[in-house]
């Protein structure tokens, strides 16, 4: 992904689709507030809307790009650019039979960012019918590693034995 912004720090913090959507919503709120603040209080707005960590990252980006925090037009342009970059994230959809713990999410997200790219986020959905394992869908590819599929295949291959047992 071509990137004029040092947004890798932002992507590091975005592990799931839900977090990404939340972040985009925060940016939208900030944009709306931008022209309501008095001169010099952009920092306060960021802290209020984005949370401490994300606000710090955005301030760092503004500093690196030498944007004056009192120049609302430049700030607006910066936020739009960040918003566009974030909208381009790729989503890796995971169907699991359980609700994943924060540790599972963290580990999975780290592996994904290391191997597939920093701009990939997880979209984890719970589907008890798969019984176990996972179904993974990314960039149009679909792989079913679920327990349900494995059991289906076993039953298909052992169909004759099962019929013999029933008879």
């Amino acid at each position: 992904m071509q990137n004029n912004l040092p947004s890798s720090d932002i992507f590091k913090n975005l592990r799931t689709l839900k977090e990404t959507e939340e972040f985009l919503s925060q940016i939208n709120n900030t944009l709306e507030s931008l022209f309501k603040i008095k001169r010099g209080s952009f920092s306060q707005v960021l802290d209020k809307n984005m949370g401490a960590e994300n606000a710090q990252i955005l301030k760092k980006i503004a500093e690196e790009k030498k944007i004056d925090l009192s120049n609302h037009s430049s700030l607006e342009k910066l936020l739009f650019e960040i918003k566009q970059e974030i909208s381009k994230v790729k989503v890796l959809k995971l169907y699991l039979a359980i609700d994943p713990t924060p540790q599972i999410i963290e580990n999975t997200s780290s592996w994904v960012k290391e191997n597939l790219g920093e701009d990939v986020v997880l979209d984890i959905e719970r589907d008890e019918t798969i019984l176990g394992g996972a179904i993974i869908s990314f960039d149009g590819q679909y792989k079913d590693f679920s327990l349900r599929k494995t059991l289906d295949e076993i039953f298909k291959s052992k169909r004759n034995e099962v019929f013999a047992l029933i008879k």
Partner: peptide, 10 residues
């Protein structure tokens, strides 16, 4: 078909 082609769209 999903399992056969291993491709998905939304």
């Amino acid at each position: 078909y999903l399992n056969e082609t291993e491709e998905i769209g939304y």
